[in-house]
Nucleic acid binder design. Structure first.
Lengths: 200, 200, 200, 200
DNA sequence: CATGAATGAGCATTCATTCAT
DNA sequence: CATGAATGAATGCTCATTCAT
């Protein structure tokens, strides 16, 4: 019989993750000390290790969390009838989705994690992700081609990969310039370009 | 009266930079020790400090170097008569440019540097870059509009920013998947999309 | 809620200071490594930094400690009725005060600290000290003049400064020759000279 | 047949010593780098080692030089007829002797050297010095006693040691406060005290 | 003789992780 | 469960000394 409810533990885990995200976003993974995280999450250094095996594990979990969150949208898309509506909603989602500090922190951490994952022996992180995400878009595009919404000769695979590359590029620049208005107008422009390419 | 020619010193500097790029690309900036760089450049730890003030300075110089290299293309573009040819050449340049290990190392380092520059008190790195690079594209687009090659209602500013965001995104994914063929086909597809947007 | 009592922490601090004093006295501040101090105080290098910000801070604290100790006598003097008795007691104090190894270590460290404080940008250490110490003697001498114990034409200010200069010189030579007997006989002789000068 | 005259070499040695004294006085022995000395003496790091075996040797030589200089006065004293005149001249010498920057530098270095010599295995420096200097004063005092200038019951040995201790103390305080006027008035006062003690 | 590039031992300091309380 | 003191390995950087030119 655990003294402390699972619920409480889960909340504390999440709180530590959020605090860590803030620290990592502000100072970077390496520059952040476990003490920083402890202080930010108003707990003790020792407690951190009750919830996570290491500082590195926190980094990994933050990336997982962000990836799941980002992928949640897939569920919502099934409601939309055609490919055009789906892609349109996708952009709606990105353009009007909330961009609070916590979200920006997680974005920053995710990019740092990616760069980190680029290093020796950690590349498989990307293979999983690219698989999931390109398939996601591929299916929509194929649906659009089948229904006649999109041109037949769309290079589906290349397009899907370019789609996420561009989106990552746009989000990366949001990180650089911290200008959400600019970010949104880039997304809108990109949507136009996409439809210009897909349709007709 | 230096016993060692300036030329020799410059070569040594460059050699250290290349070695550092390799180390940073493999292990990341923080994980790389100055000893690693010394070993990789076949010199001593002390010598590193004859050529650079700190490990951090090496990081900065590597970013500077890459940025200059990337920007060199601007000179070459003046030869081309119209905006279409310029943009086309730009893509040629990116698509057929050499992608040896050293270049990939520098790309990896540059992205890590950007993430690092994202952190507290270092953002001005981006303002310089965005200014130079967006202006670069803006001028070409405006030339194209004036000459009638491109539509009048192109959103020049947004387009220019999107252009570099996308390019950065594509290069970032090259880093992730290390697949140059895929990288090139994405660039080709992006060129198509751009012209579809700009023309007519 | 500290797991370790404040008392314990204070004791540990003091123990580190004593060990450091021993190391500094034996090898000098620069030649002493933090490892030396750790070893001497039977703790770890890391622990040293739990109690002090830097090696230099230890050096400063040791000087502060010695200065306070040296100045403690002032309290005791208030009991004595006249200036002669006060000065006499002062010498008693110096002559018969204990001169164990720890004290000698602290003396050695203090002189090294002074020489160190002589260097660029650290001289204000002395202004505080000279003020406190000369005032201390000045008051006694003035009391003696008023009461008629001492000559009216004593050069109070010069005398006070000479007093501490001489005392410092005597203690410095104790450091050089480590001969406590000689040290005490010099103090006694100096007392004679002082009274010969002050009285009559 | 040496290419460069001995004279030139000697001058260069002296120049390096003076520069080193300046550096040591300003930053301390440990804090001074051989590069500092090279720069200050307008020569190269390598050259320093043509003239001195090590940084430490420079430190030693500086102390020797100062000690010799200080002892030079002994020769001059033989001209004076009696002990009183000799001591009087001694004070004249100290009080009106020049106190330029170079002299102050050497004083500073000497004290630092003493503290340094205090450390393990270097104490014999003092035994030599104390022997020479106390004998010097002892002889004068004994001459004065014999001639009837001074009291018969002067504690010659203690007095001689106290004499140098005090002088060192006074010079030490000059180092602390850098106030030459104050320094001279302390010397004058000390002379008074001495004669008050010796005579009558 | 003169130079200053090269070397690598040495050191202060930091910090992730452990563990006694 | 919670804490934070303790640890010591790890690392950036310095600098006396050497030596090829």
């Amino acid at each position: 019989m655990p003294r402390v409810s699972e619920n409480y533990k889960e909340e504390k885990r999440e709180a530590i993750l959020d605090s860590a995200a803030q620290c990592f976003a502000e100072k970077g993974f390496s520059e952040t000390t476990v003490d920083d995280i402890a202080k930010a999450s108003k707990t003790s250094k020792g407690s951190i290790y009750l919830y996570f095996k290491s500082k590195e594990e926190i980094f990994h979990k933050l990336n997982d969390r962000r990836t799941e969150k980002y992928f949640e949208i897939k569920e919502q898309l099934s409601e939309f009838k055609n490919a055009t509506a789906k892609i349109d909603y996708l952009f709606q989602y990105f353009i009007s989705g909330k961009m609070d500090d916590n979200t920006l922190n997680h974005i920053a951490v995710q990019f740092e994690f990616w760069i980190y994952a680029t290093k020796a022996g950690r590349q498989q992180v990307f293979d999983d992700r690219v698989e999931r995400f390109t398939t996601f878009i591929t299916e929509i595009i194929e649906e659009g081609i089948e229904s006649g919404e999109f041109r037949e000769d769309v290079q589906v695979k290349e397009f899907s990969r370019l789609f996420w590359s561009t989106l990552d590029g746009i989000v990366l620049h949001l990180l650089f310039h911290k200008d959400i208005t600019e970010h949104r107008s880039m997304l809108r422009l990109y949507e136009q370009m996409i439809f210009k390419y897909l349709q007709n």
